[in-house]
Amino acid sequence: MYETKYHKASSVDEAVSLMGAADDGKLLSGGQTLLPTMKAHLAAPSDLVDVSGIADMNGVGVRGNVISIGAATTHAEVAGNAALQNACAAVTDLAANIGDPAVRHMGTIGGSIANNDPAADYPAALLALGATIKTNARDIAAEDFFVGLFETALEDDEVIVSIGFEAPEKACYAKFPNPASRYAMAGVFVAKTAGGARVAVTGAGDDGVYRQSDMEAALDGNWSAGALTGVSVSADGMLSDMHGDATYRANLVKVMAGRAVAGC
């Protein structure tokens, strides 16, 4: 790993000013993506600003059906939150199946969505739930936040503070994990919300997470796995790599969507 200067921020404001003062700073949260990337010499930030200890960025709040998750909340804390499990078990189950126990003890929701890996799990949940990403500067709708492969709407030095959403009527996430890495080969998050059915797909699209609108239309009138049988998923725009080609992934999307709806 190249040399770097470590700073521990104790507030969001401090993190923003430390980033402003740094030459080429990067925020450090759980480090489960950034540190391996730095070890591989694929990133060489001059400064690391650790946000994991900032109180305002930690913890899960559930007030009625209004949910807020601090950006530095670990996957294990989300998975183990009883109030959130009552309000939206699809999200606690999703967190409980990210990576492995040691990764879940360190990795955070903010780090995961800032990284926007095309096979990461949280982006599908946030897009399907119509979540709002709150930063130090503004509120960003999930729809606008996830821009493309490893790309988000975040400006340089912008800090995600928390993620907010309303508990849906029903929701479920079905993931077909790559047997080696456990990242999604295709993961489908379905939600029955006040505004209608929402279906978001991760792991499969060649431009990252996206909404499968024809499935949403089919589920709007008839929330059942059977409603999806008539929907065909095109292989155009699907990822094709050594783990599976586009046709295989298109089929997985359909199968996972069916399992997700049946699991609600």
Binding site: Y6, L28, Q32, L35, P36, K39, S52, A102, H105, S181
Partner: peptide, 25 residues
């Protein structure tokens, strides 16, 4: 690649991969 787990130690009572954590942190 942070995948093998040979480096797991407990930090404040929790299992973590010590190859994916900084000493200063």
């Amino acid at each position: 690649t942070s995948q093998c787990g040979a480096c797991v130690v407990h930090v404040n009572g929790k299992a973590v991969k010590s190859c994916a954590a900084l000493a200063v942190a």
